[in-house]
Write a protein that binds this DNA or RNA. Structure first.
Lengths: 183, 183
DNA sequence: CGGCGCATGTAACTTGTTACATGATTCC
DNA sequence: GGAATCATGTAACAAGTTACATGCGCCG
């Protein structure tokens, strides 16, 4: 089984505030990016389905001067479904790191090629870590409220993992610089 | 774009030794499990396609006493394709951690529920780390050869990431034990 | 007034999983 | 003799991505 989690991502975000499909995508993209992703092709159809099932309530913006905008909010029923999911065992955990695939087979290529790959990976994760640090400092400035502490805890894993990546990049660059070149 | 990497996983593994589809699955499952996965539903069709394209050579086991067995080996052409892929930029990097989704929304559930989730996650990754440590010590025992050092480098990332996870679990358990319970 | 961001949506496609069918061999 | 493992393969399905179509509003 292991059904799609899009449904619960949406319900979870709506439990904090009303949002449009566009908003949801943006939040996932920014705040969840290091451990999750959702595309419009998933969000909009699920939103429609959730609305039919009365787990969320759709409200078209009434002031007609504005552009089309459908704001969704969670219903009582939706809250129950969300809370129920939270108690159920975690099913999804996956990772796909092509960089490790290339590292594994790297004796088939040159040192320079791998150094460049590691360099790019390092740069990306430096940026990601900086972003997470920025989020953290912003969050800490604001009043403690809602799921504030929980979000900090999520950020913490991101920081640790990115630090692990960066350490590994250093170590790997040393390894590569020492490696005698074949191929 | 961002085409499937199954093809290159297969070519890479075949660059070390001849293997059956079953073998490939097993190797990916054991050795790559912490950062990659492939299912039979992907491997067998790709193997057939690679054979048609002459990137690999299929050999049915001839001694007919044995059960059916198709051993694949990489061709010159296949080696070129593999080496070419190794030089191309890394495209695929994804992570999906449902545990962080649940952590993010955890103010909607009880402390006990989250403690149990974290406990399971911790246990899983303790096992994974132990397995990686075992691989490492086994590898270090054998003669240095082939892509030995590169494999150790891959293992190293797994170890660092798992250690990061375990630290986070500790930290999170402390956080949860202090958290006043809502909901 | 041009470009970017907001906003919704879908169709076609690719990818990946699961379940099933089949059967031999090995090990206890 | 029965269970586990080896071994191949596919069909149905589920999940996820990408590209496209459409158009408004805001800012410089």
């Amino acid at each position: 089984m292991n059904q799609s989690k899009t449904k619960f991502v949406i319900l979870g975000l709506l439990s904090e505030q009303s949002l449009t499909g566009y908003d949801i995508r943006k939040i996932v993209d920014i705040r969840f990016s290091f451990f999750w992703n959702e595309s419009y092709g998933q969000i909009y159809p699920v939103l429609k389905k959730l609305s039919e099932e009365k787990l969320v309530l759709a409200e078209k913006s009434k002031d007609d001067s504005k552009r089309e905008r459908i704001s969704y909010s969670i219903t009582k029923k939706g809250t129950i479904v969300l809370k129920n999911w939270l108690t159920e065992p975690v099913e999804t955990e996956s990772m796909r790191l092509e960089i490790l695939l290339k590292m594994y087979f790297s004796n088939m290529t040159t040192r320079e090629v791998m150094q460049a790959h590691i360099g790019t990976f390092e740069e990306n994760h430096k940026k990601q870590l900086e972003l997470l640090n920025l989020f953290e400092s912003q969050l800490k400035k604001v009043e403690d409220q809602d799921n504030h502490q929980e979000v900090l805890q999520v950020l913490s894993l991101g920081q640790k993992v990115n630090q692990a990546y960066l350490e590994w990049c250093q170590e790997t660059q040393v390894f590569l610089s020492k490696r005698r070149d074949r191929s």
